[in-house]
Design a protein around this nucleic acid. Structure first.
Lengths: 363, 363
DNA sequence: CGGTATTTTGGCAGCGCTACCATTTTCTGT
DNA sequence: ACAGAAAATGGTAGCGCTGCCAAAATACCG
């Protein structure tokens, strides 16, 4: 009874304060922005349930022991008051947070949303919240993002790529949390590394083209200074050509991020400069699809007159009238595997996931 | 000098503890996971700089007044110790957080990464961190996500769509923070709404097809129970047909999320069932591109034998040999505009951004 | 049924930081 | 040079929660 009265009074107070937009909380302190249920604290719930704070806390976290009777009353009180736990306070009080930072260079290329998707789905199931950062392919921006994300004291950090500024590297090493570098295994990692070798992917592409008998092979890429992984593929590609006594018969690098339009235009140009190419390796599927569309428009026969090879294995590439020859990269899987490593406590290690060469109809 | 000694001792202690993985922090409390620089608190910096905590705090936040001399020494100390501010503690102590929750149904469809991209870019510039949640088109999942995100006490929440469970609706209304509902203006919003009318988009598509003389118009869609916005487009589409005395001459709904493959297969099927269609309206560009690819494969003449119309204005649709007739939706712009509203303090309102009908070569 | 083992509980000291306030120091102007 | 204003500074009480500990309630055993 006493409880009930106290509660309804509180409810009234809350309603009034909602109008003012703020309210005096349990203590003397003023000012927590709120509507109805927000601003209800654990103390309020505990009092309403007639138990101590720590008991209420244990019940709400299903942690430690408590009688089923207290459990019921705490839960009931929490529901009735519309209690929303404050994870900020919880994180500060306890040791580790349930935030995980994810840093990707871009969201414009489906590759990274795929990565995010895999990571976020596994993280969510494990009770983590993803906090994202987008670098726009800028390593200095990445440094700033890392520092910013670290200030939220995440349980771990997922970062695309192995390359960082020295300061970023130092921050990551010193953070004392799990660091997962993704999508690239060509180089030394800081802690955990999950991905595949882009160099090998480039090599595989070259070997495939060579095996099919192509000899006048061109390269169409996008801004490599920014996309380090594409650069590594190209490097592996050239290395494999060299092993076969060949070299790139022409190359065209669009000074812009990869896109279908860029691939289309770049292929157009390279065919002007080097008309006798018999195959073209693209920096990724977006670029390659652009090339494919150009060929369709121009009536350039594929693969007889010109062969095309991409990278990533996007859906659009697989579903085209002539499926693109490409390399399917396990992007979602990399995200998933990376997320799983967040709560692991093993020593630093490298997880290699295989890519798969898809022999489409364009080579 | 005394300072310096204290510092080097601290460094040593920190190194040792790094091995153990934890360390006793300034107080008596034990246990902050850390490597090198983490675990350094504001108190440490203040002591090292020989100033009070609050002064150090003011300097580091460039807030309030302090001499340039103190400024220098605090900054130097912070840099030397590798201080990383703890935003968790900062948020708890101050009134509002710098987190913004963003809830989208999926990351598999480029539409939502686009939305995220726009929002995140504006939010980042304003000093906010994006915390993401993916519902997988599940309203109950959305409810759980909202509750979970709210527990991080975000400054605001961006949510795709106007439809929510009653409980989710109540939580959003009661949260006392800015709520922005995105991508849909066909219905009542909770606080702010940013988007366009999907119903009108469907209408526009229908009018366009009618104006071009098509009369046997079919619809190819994906799981409408999940994608409410696609359902609204279809509704508007049918309404406009009805106004012209027409009706959908056949429809095929793939019971799966939208994809190129689904579009391809669904068009194949509908053409079996209703061979005499002269135009097809797709639930979105992914589906439409699938249809386009089918036509290319089958040699179905576009637009003479069959016209295709999509929705979204994806790059792949614009760059195809025959640019797809579609409606360009301002996805990135919606994200940007939404993010801007987070720090606004005006009354609830609706921001309508225009879509643009693109007359491609497929109608 | 007493007494020990066990389960439940509440109190309280922080987590690291910021807001507020009081104090000290440094400027002004005359 | 001195009062008064302004700028700098430090102390400290929380923010809401969790972890630890001791106390209370309950269970168990011979």
């Amino acid at each position: 009874m006493a409880d009930k009265d106290a509660l309804s009074m509180q409810d009234d107070a809350m309603r009034d304060d909602a109008l003012a937009g703020r309210r005096a909380s349990s203590g003397t302190h003023i000012g927590f922005p709120m509507g109805s249920g927000a601003g209800v604290t654990l103390t309020d719930v505990a009092r309403a349930a007639g138990v101590g704070e720590s008991t209420a806390s244990r019940v709400l976290r299903s942690h430690g022991s408590f009688s089923s009777k207290t459990r019921a009353s705490v839960l009931e009180a929490a529901a009735r008051l519309g209690y929303v736990p404050n994870r900020i306070a919880g994180t500060l009080a306890s040791t580790g947070s349930k935030l995980v930072g994810i840093i990707v260079p871009s969201l414009a290329n489906i590759v990274f949303p795929d990565l995010l998707r895999g990571a976020n789905s596994v993280l969510g199931k494990a009770g983590f919240q993803s906090v994202i950062g987008v670098t726009d392919y800028d390593l200095v921006g990445e440094e700033a993002l890392i520092s910013s994300l670290l200030s939220w004291r995440p349980a771990g950090l997922l970062v695309a790529g192995l390359e960082h500024t020295p300061r970023a590297d130092a921050m990551l090493r010193g953070a004392g949390i799990r660091i997962i570098e993704m999508l690239d295994t060509d180089g030394a990692g800081i802690d955990m590394v999950v991905g595949f070798s882009n160099r090998d992917a480039g090599r595989a592409a070259a070997r495939h083209l060579i095996a099919r008998g192509y000899r006048r092979i061109g390269y169409v890429g996008h801004d490599l200074a920014l996309d380090l992984r594409a650069a590594k593929r190209f490097e592996g590609f050239r290395a494999a050509l060299a092993e076969a006594g060949l070299q790139v018969a022409g190359q065209m690098i669009a000074p812009v991020p990869s896109s279908i339009a860029a691939g289309r235009e770049a292929l157009d140009r390279i065919l002007h400069e080097t008309p006798d190419l018999d195959a073209v390796y693209f920096s990724n599927d977006d670029m390659a699809i652009g090339g494919y569309f150009l060929c369709l428009s121009r009536g350039i026969g594929i693969p007889d007159r010109l062969a095309l090879f991409g990278h990533n294995g996007l859906e659009v590439a697989r579903c085209a009238p002539q499926p693109l020859s490409t390399i399917r990269t396990p992007r979602v899987e990399v995200g998933e595997a990376s997320a799983r490593l967040i709560s692991s406590d093993g020593p630093p290690s490298i997880v290699t996931l295989d890519f798969e060469l898809i022999e489409g109809a364009t080579t």
